[in-house]
């Protein structure tokens, strides 16, 4: 066993345990153990378990970005100082100062790439587990030979084998497989596009939108669907179901976050404030809670960053 397989072993074991657990649960609730639907539901269960296990990470991040609201006046002061300066050195200096300000306040609005990195070996593990099962090989743990055979022979609605790829569908000329694969790809593209667009257009501050990163993101928004199409061509339907459900989960989670806990200073945050104000009006309360405090905070932000040049009191004509 090489080192890579050794590293993947525990991940695959857990994935198999969750899959088989859900398969057992659904079968005992009256599901057909050989049906594709049972396996698809097991995959849905796997997504729910894995993504729910990651909720603490997400919540921690949201709370952290809430806390960064307190640093907002300082951040706005820095942004004002560098307003209109778009050269590389000013941008760098601005980012340095911003990061320092966050560090000083003991908060950070960024999540780090860990939440993304942990998902990669999980997806890889699932691909390996399903590939082995498709070849009627037993897994590393609870996925026995009997279950592997059942998985590889399972079909959705009796016509769409879960181990088939879009490529395979075209080769054998199976219309149901092609239709299922294309429908899934379209839903995947749509959810991905929607999530990305929501994050970009609503949950970013105007300062974020000025960065060169933002422009690249805009271009990629239209390239991602192409990538998805290529991967959909190659991956078996079973794996695609995992991806699809995961995407939908992200989209829903994003919608909840944007509506309830938007990034301070973004369009979504302004929309939320407006909603809250309307609600307060309906309830007969003053439009904004603590309006005076906000005005004071605004005045503080207006403090000058550059010294005003002294002016002579004499009129121009009398100057020497």
């Amino acid at each position: 066993m090489d080192i890579f397989a050794l590293l993947m072993w525990p991940i695959k074991w857990v994935i198999e345990a969750i899959l088989v657990g859900f398969h057992f649960l659904i079968t005992s609730l009256g599901g057909d153990p050989g049906s594709g639907l049972t396996w698809v539901l097991s995959i849905v269960g796997l997504v729910l378990v894995i993504r729910s296990a990651m909720i603490p990470l997400t919540v921690r991040q949201i709370l952290s970005s809430r806390k960064s609201l307190e640093v907002q006046p300082e951040i706005q002061r820095i942004q004002k100082k560098y307003k209109g300066k778009k050269d590389q050195f000013s941008r760098e200096a601005m980012q340095r100062e911003t990061m320092e300000a966050y560090k000083k306040a003991g908060t950070n609005p960024f999540a780090s790439c860990l939440p993304l990195l942990v998902q990669m070996p999980i997806f890889l593990g699932l691909v390996q587990v399903l590939t082995d099962a498709n070849q009627q090989k037993p897994g590393v743990g609870l996925l026995t030979l009997e279950l592997a055979v059942k998985f590889s022979e399972s079909t959705l609605f009796g016509v769409v084998p879960l181990h088939e790829t879009m490529q395979g569908g075209f080769e054998i000329g199976s219309l149901p497989v092609i239709i299922t694969a294309i429908t899934m790809t379209l839903i995947m593209c749509a959810t991905q596009f929607y999530t990305q667009l929501q994050i970009m257009s609503k949950n970013q501050t105007p300062a974020m939108k000025e960065s060169p990163m933002y422009k690249q993101q805009r271009i990629l928004l239209y390239i991602i669907p192409v990538f998805l199409l290529v991967s959909a061509w190659l991956f078996p339907l079973g794996t695609m179901f995992y991806w699809l459900v995961s995407n939908v989960y992200t989209a829903v989670q994003q919608l909840i976050i944007i509506n309830n806990l938007p990034t301070p200073g973004s369009e979504a945050a302004l929309a939320r404030e407006a909603r809250m104000a309307r609600k307060r009006q309906r309830m007969g309360l003053p439009a904004v809670e603590g309006a005076d405090d906000e005005a004071a905070a605004q005045a503080e932000i207006e403090t000058k960053t550059q010294r005003q040049q002294p002016r002579s009191k004499k009129p121009k004509s009398e100057r020497e």
């Binding site: 911003t98 960024f110 999540a111 990163m213 271009i219």
Partner: peptide, 15 residues
């Protein structure tokens, strides 16, 4: 940095 990084935007906690 040109192709993959922008997919998930600014996430790094460091500068």
């Amino acid at each position: 940095r040109a192709v993959i990084s922008p997919l998930y935007g600014d996430v790094c906690r460091y500068y």
